[in-house]
Design a protein around this nucleic acid. Sequence first.
DNA 1: CTGCGCTGCTAGAGCGCTCTAGTGCTCCTA
DNA 2: TAGGAGCACTAGAGCGCTCTAGCAGCGCAG
Lengths: 333, 333
Amino acid sequence: MASDRVTMEDVAARAGVSRALVSIVFRGVAGASDATRERVLAAARELDYRPDTRASRLGRSRTRMIGVTFSVGAAFHGDLLQSLYTHADAAGYEVVLSGVTPERSESAAVETLLAERCEAIVALGSTLGAGELGRLAAQLPVVSVLRAVSGGVDVVRTDDAAGLQLAVAHLVELGHERIALLDGGRAAGAAERRRGYRAGLRRAGGLPEHVYPGGLTELEGASSATEFLALERDRPTAVTAFNDRCALGFIDVVRQAGLRVPHDVSVVGFDDISQAAYPHVGLTTVRQDAEQLGTAAIRTVDARLSGAAPGPATVIDPELVVRTSTAPLLSGG
Amino acid sequence: MASDRVTMEDVAARAGVSRALVSIVFRGVAGASDATRERVLAAARELDYRPDTRASRLGRSRTRMIGVTFSVGAAFHGDLLQSLYTHADAAGYEVVLSGVTPERSESAAVETLLAERCEAIVALGSTLGAGELGRLAAQLPVVSVLRAVSGGVDVVRTDDAAGLQLAVAHLVELGHERIALLDGGRAAGAAERRRGYRAGLRRAGGLPEHVYPGGLTELEGASSATEFLALERDRPTAVTAFNDRCALGFIDVVRQAGLRVPHDVSVVGFDDISQAAYPHVGLTTVRQDAEQLGTAAIRTVDARLSGAAPGPATVIDPELVVRTSTAPLLSGG
DNA sequence: CTGCGCTGCTAGAGCGCTCTAGTGCTCCTA
DNA sequence: TAGGAGCACTAGAGCGCTCTAGCAGCGCAG
């Protein structure tokens, strides 16, 4: 309970060198012989010494910290965090997390990151207004992941519009002509996806639009399903949802109503969360690549901190993953 | 991009006071007149000053930081984090997050928290061995949330055994006699729940055990369902699962196989994640109270840091939430 | 008028690192 | 043998706060 009072000074004394030398060893920079290095590390080990990151950050000219705001509980943010941790580490940065909850606003989350003196901020699925983000970006590099924003903010996102075009094209190819969209409202990427949906219909020769409110979770997918089921005639034969969770909620309800998926209605999701790939689910979906998004975010931060000018948005191509929730339209559908 | 060079010194100069006075104002302690306080805050506002938490932590004798390790992507951990943020703040502590991912071990996560000089560690659903946790606890207060551990570590958890007894009693009351358990293996709380399940059966007059491997996600629930469906005769009429996700996966598969829930099989989950309450899901479940668990964790940390001896584990009573996934056994079941 | 307690404020020594600007030393080359 | 070049290492001044001591000034009891 008291071993934490060990400082660099103690290690230096024990190893018979100066404090500076210990610092050199622990930072892993050149300037110490292998023998000394080993001696210092041994002394540290014996004392159970651990460099104090608070002090090290203060002393350093650059903190090399990247602040990340994320939505506590959002599955896909979890995937992104994993990728961010890995690549930040590889590029010599430290990740500082700041969670957003219903009771802890994104502004508050950002505020603590600024107070920590992070060098850049990576905002996952930010819901901050363009103005607020712009003001932030005037102070330090800001990367908006998943959400397109204009004005000085770097953006790393999936090509949402292309994703929905893939989905629609897939359904069209299967013979569907009444294709519905479960929308995402004001969520990150929703506007783009809506655009992609419309473009897809247009390209297929001007198929009719069927837009349901939709939303981010199973709950909204389910209520859209109820609305969908209420339709007596000319019901869509295929549905493409804002995201996987929404799609899953939709499927759940239509199945309980006796419809078969994909026999009676084909469903496409978006994200490719791990659940979608479970064999009993087999959701056809548009895959967002968390790994690539994470790499790109870190690369962008690194470039900006190295003085690069804000480039165009990094847009990652999505990929259609065909599973068993989509099938050819049955004649007479 | 350069406003970050503003320091306490600058604010002091602008307000015409000493650095120390600015510190007093920002820490909110006594020792400054209201007029001066206002003047300092105004100066700070004009300069867009923000105290540097790195420096403040270094200077302080106590860091008042609570390190929290959590599993990135675990829905229930999200609920807990929310509660922790709120109560830590109220008690004057700062929460420092350290995420665990498949590529970032819990040990690594803990290591960074120690290097930050957190005063205590709250581990959510820790998978660390008792030995490792014990060694940690020798250095600083450690609270294991959700998982029971022995040896110097404070524990805050739900009464898992009681939870399963509630579930079993509920099913017994509905007339079920063949009640299966979808187990949780080595997961936090699984052993306790198994014990509760057995105790429940015993109390009901020694009903037979039916244990399926189960697991933490829908995937494992689904494979247990496959196994369940393969049973030709004397199939259980009710199932209680390790957690909600597992229960949901189970339901999904048996429904696709044509069974009706709860008509043909009743299902009880554990946790009460938000999905369970969705109307189209209506999962009967044993509710773990994230809010209470979070409060208790912070209270425990606070007590320990104030010199209290490690008390007995805080065990929160779970609550059975009856929804529509359970029903009385049909005669001839 | 002295002495005391208070309030409001300041000086300055840390906190535990980083990092620049050295100081010796050995080894090489001219 | 002098004059570098390089390597291993050290001294010491920060980094931006916190916090203990202490000081000035005021009101008030004795």
